[in-house]
């Protein structure tokens, strides 16, 4: 659809602020929590974060800062809208 084409990756991420997200790292570890904010390096701040490894809950953090170079994708809620983040925001603009 036309509308979809006009949304940029940062629009998607901006809309996800304040919502439940799933952040997957390249190690396979997943973080589920509420997205507080993110920056141009795709460093991410999450609230009420749960750490899931192999489908098991391993840890909980009130707040968590996730360093931007580790993420593979972010899913908003349960709707699977995949972003194949590799290194930095600059490179993600070429998807």
């Amino acid at each position: 659809m036309q509308e979809l084409q006009e949304r940029s990756p940062s629009d998607f991420l901006g809309e996800a602020i304040g919502r439940r997200v799933l952040v997957k790292l390249n190690s396979g570890v997943e973080y589920r929590g509420i997205l507080s904010c993110l920056d141009g390096y795709m460093n991410i701040a999450l609230e009420q974060t749960e750490e899931w490894v192999n489908g098991q809950l391993k840890n909980k953090y009130g707040d968590a800062f996730i360093r931007g170079n580790n993420e593979v994708e972010i899913q908003k809620g349960d709707a699977i809208t995949i972003t194949a983040m590799k290194e930095r925001l600059e490179s993600t603009l070429f998807w």
């Binding site: 570890v29 974060t49 953090y61 707040d63 968590a64 800062f65 996730i66 360093r67």
Partner: peptide, 14 residues
């Protein structure tokens, strides 16, 4: 060194 860091969790701000 920062590049080894995956996650940082501060003390609870609640």
């Amino acid at each position: 060194r920062g590049d080894g860091i995956i996650l940082v969790s501060p003390p609870s701000r609640t």
